[in-house]
Computed example of a mutant assay.
Amino acid sequence: MAMKFSVLASGSSGNAIYVETDEHSFLVDAGLSCKQIGNLFQQIGRDPAKLDGLLVTHEHSDHIKGIGVMARKYKLPVFANERTWQAMDGLIGEIATEQKFVFGMETVQSYGGLDIESFGVSHDAAEPMFYIFRSGGKKLVIVTDTGYVSDRMKGIISDADMYVFESNHDIDMLRMGRYPWNIKRRILSDVGHVSNEDAALAMSEVIGDNTKRIYLAHLSRDNNMKDLARMSVQQTLEAQGMAVGSQFELFDTDPSIPTDLTAV
């Protein structure tokens, strides 16, 4: 069963990732307006009304901005863990009870030949978690919004065919930038976001023989640049003995331009 995905949008202004098999399709987060997400779906030739559900990672606005309107407009099921549901209360408007589903932390839900596994990350939200998709012997891992990548996480996400991996900031740009110190401290903390170098070091420990593509995601608009992120990650991986470009490839993501719908 072929599994395909597109990073519709990724960055501090909004995040949404589309995953499909021949039988099912899901959207991980809806951190843009319903109209914007509809336009992104058009660009990849898909219809949001046909989604099987919306999977929520955590309650920050760049991940849930469009959840409520999407759910109401298209009558979509919404999946989140109990603490995230509580944290979203009052942020996404009313959602009908029959559209609200609990997806527990570190559990697996199956839809035909598609298995979706949740796992916890270290971020300053109620109970943040991300997702692994498995179908047809392939494995897609989505992991952003984490201050560090723990050994437990590394074990869960290792040797995926494809990764959507946070590469949030360049440490020097962040330190020299315009953010107030309390925001800088939050981003650099264990419940903030991983830097380009720390992301690459974590990647070097999880990349396996099956790994073919890594998408650098959730880049800071103010404290990173695509070229810088890719260069930093590549240099760090190559210093760890990884053959970037032949063993696997690195790809950019964008806040407003979807990646090509790609088979995992």
Rank of each mutant, 00 (worst) to 15 (best):
S118P: 03
N196H: 14
F130T: 04
K100M: 12
L76Y: 06
M88Y: 04
E117R: 15
G177I: 11
M88K: 10
I95A: 11
K73E: 13
L140K: 00
D115Q: 09
V108L: 03
R152G: 14
R72Y: 06
Q86W: 10
G66N: 08
P77R: 06
D159L: 09
A125I: 06
V143C: 10
F119C: 06
R178T: 13
A160H: 05
V194W: 00
I157F: 02
G155F: 01
D115P: 03
D124K: 06
K139G: 05
S189R: 14
S61Q: 15
G137L: 04
M153G: 02
D145P: 01
H58E: 13
I157V: 15
W181H: 14
I157E: 01
K184W: 08
L140P: 00
A202W: 00
I92K: 06
P128M: 04
I67N: 10
G112T: 02
E59Y: 07
V191H: 10
S122E: 15
I171V: 15
A160Q: 07
V191K: 09
D170W: 06
Y111S: 05
Q86S: 14
H169Y: 15
Y179I: 13
G177W: 00
D115R: 01
A202R: 05
L174C: 05
L114F: 06
E117T: 09
Y148G: 09
E127P: 00
D172E: 15
S158Q: 13
M176H: 12
G120E: 15
G66K: 10
A160K: 02
A71V: 08
